[in-house]
């Protein structure tokens, strides 16, 4: 069983995603990085599902499908927000979006 390799891959993807989320200033890139994090989770889900036994693998796969669906919706709404920010400010630099500053 090659579980370890899948987990390492997922961890790598997750780290890349987190890095992207924390460091990139471009909102679209941040969204993409979130996508990476979600996908790393998907990999984990599928891999661990298979790891529990083939008859159980379906659980992990269904979960991943859910995540993919939710991620699609999230990206949709996220892009819409980014679009609106751009229209208002002519920029999608996240460091400038600090209206919630206390």
């Amino acid at each position: 069983m090659y579980l370890m390799q899948f987990l390492v891959l997922a961890a790598f993807l997750f780290c890349v995603g987190v890095y992207g989320v924390l460091v990139r200033k471009n909102a679209v890139l941040v969204l993409m990085s979130i996508e990476l994090i979600l996908n790393s989770v998907n990999i984990n889900l599928v891999a661990l599902g298979v790891y529990r036994g083939y008859d159980q693998a379906i659980v992990g796969q269904v979960f991943s499908l859910f995540v993919i669906a939710v991620a699609a919706a999230e990206v949709g709404i996220g892009l819409a927000i980014v679009l609106l920010i751009y229209r208002n400010r002519a920029s999608i630099d996240l460091s400038e979006v600090d209206l919630m500053k206390g």
């Binding site: 989320v21 979006v97 600090d98 206390g102």
Partner: peptide, 15 residues
């Protein structure tokens, strides 16, 4: 004091 944490920047929150 806590206010200073509340920067309004999403990425800091995430961090």
């Amino acid at each position: 004091l806590l206010r200073y944490i509340q920067t309004g920047r999403v990425q800091q929150y995430a961090a």
